[in-house]
Write a protein that binds this DNA or RNA. Sequence first.
RNA 1: GCGCCCGUAGCUCAGCUGGAUAGAGCACCAGACUACGAAUCUGGGGGUCGCAAGUUCGAAUCUUGCCGGGCGCACCA
Length: 552
Amino acid sequence: MRELLQSLLGDALTAARDAGELELAETTPVVVEKPREQGHGDLACNVAMLLARSERQPPRKIAETLAAQINDPRIESVEVAGPGFINVTFSAAAWRERLGDILEKGDGFGRVNLGEGRRVQVEFVSANPTGPLHVGHGRGAATGDALARVLEAAGYEVEREYYVNDAGRQMRILGRSVLARYLQAVDENAAFPEEGYPGEYVTEIASLLREDKGDALEQLPEDESVAIAADYAGDKLLGRIREDLAAFGVSMDNFSSEKKLRGDGTVEAAIQELRDAGHTYEEGGAEWFRSTDFGDDKDRPLVKSGGDLTYFAADVGYHRKKFARGMEKVVDIWGADHHGYVKRVRSALDALGVDPSGLQVVLVQMVNLTRDGEPVRMGKRSGEFVALRDVIDEVGADLARFFFLARKSDAQLEFDLELARRQTAENPVFYIQYAHTRIAGVFRQAEEKGIPLLEGAADVLSGLQHEDEIALIRVLDDYPNIVESAARSLEPHRVIFYVQALAGDFHRFYSRHRVVSDDKAVTAARLLLVKAVQQVIGNALSLVGISAPSRM
RNA sequence: GCGCCCGUAGCUCAGCUGGAUAGAGCACCAGACUACGAAUCUGGGGGUCGCAAGUUCGAAUCUUGCCGGGCGCACCA
């Protein structure tokens, strides 16, 4: 409906110019929005106020001029209000027609073409395979997965990627930790590294390692045995991470390995390119990227004085490769504690001739997990953390996803396990799902009574005469705009807020009006109306990865 | 010290990228099932939008400066 009004207003502007009533020296975008107040019509436009200055006319007068030019059967009234708003109300018939449109689109309602088929990669989770996923990763997983779905609905071709940090110091520490437990099985005095991972799972993996390899590692030189243990543990842990993600309903298209990138020349090639372009220098035996030339606060090391590549170097190669592979846009979901990293990766892309605005980083703030208000301490190093898997087992994937997505990603989130679980009485997730279920109940009722669903039949919708019915259609009509704005702003929480409001609107409608009644015409029409509501709730829930049950 | 994020109802948070009288849920109080599932609905109290300037027809929203909280500032990942 927004598009319809925009085009009508565009025509009105042209007509007013042709009639000599407006000059329109500059083009002004026509923005149409939904007014907060019900009395202000279905949609409102502020273009008259924006034009007031350049036209040297009072905004209300411009609004009057435009209002007089609008003449369309689908529009019931055009009013000029306040400082110069043009408030437009569509006819009930136009809204009924829109409902028919929504029903016809079905699953596809809410698809928009913002992306125009452009390729975008969403990289998320990307946790080191040094331990199980914890709740913080869960929030990143929910956010990244929802974003991927939203972008798909917005017309992008999306690839979901997990970057596996399977190289470097943390992996060596993991290897030493596992090896120590492995050795402790036969030698009580074997030392456990001071920095080692204390988790129970380390011991468990060590005994698996012994089952698989016997005592083979006991005789090897330490760096070899550590490397073997690290690889072994990394594989096992990544396998568990995949299982956890699967339990959370998240699937990746790619797992891309840092070790492989370092091994196959990708990283070295990127560094060479920086060298060739003169963006590097040596100092103190290390090689640095002059990122300050691209707006970073300080220069960053690429090669350590010992000759090893830094993590940053690997990331430069990795990000360059993403764009070289044809991504027009890359969205990285990072923990907010990595925010200082954004600038330097962008700098590197810039230096490599890639438009740095193609990389968008969504920062996900930490989760403060509590139980009955008491903070649950977390931290992989201390071995004390709450695994994502435990949360899923305790409250379920739907509930966990909802709480992770129910606020802006860059706001800290308090997640109380007891509350989420105990709240089953009045829980926002069930509230939304119940709306979907209730409608399924209506259809069960209709079926029992032998009332058919008259889809596609002409004139059925004319049975919708009540203002509350039209109001519901107005909310449904807004859904594609929500999808578009969530995609544009990379803010999946908007979908959550929308579907919550829609569920509320439906519950109110349901308690005020009977769907299945003795009035055949009204029943037939309302069945279609609630079918559309159910469809949109289902579409929205699927965008955020929450199930839409028919029974609860 | 420098940089990024956040300060909105008692609590948890929205506020559609500058619009009209600032919203929702929870909590609290009072009500509603002989018809589609009451996991629901109706009504009520609750606010210097952290503070102060600036930008303009118009600011919770944009700018700047303070105040308060979080997080970063490694040849770690």
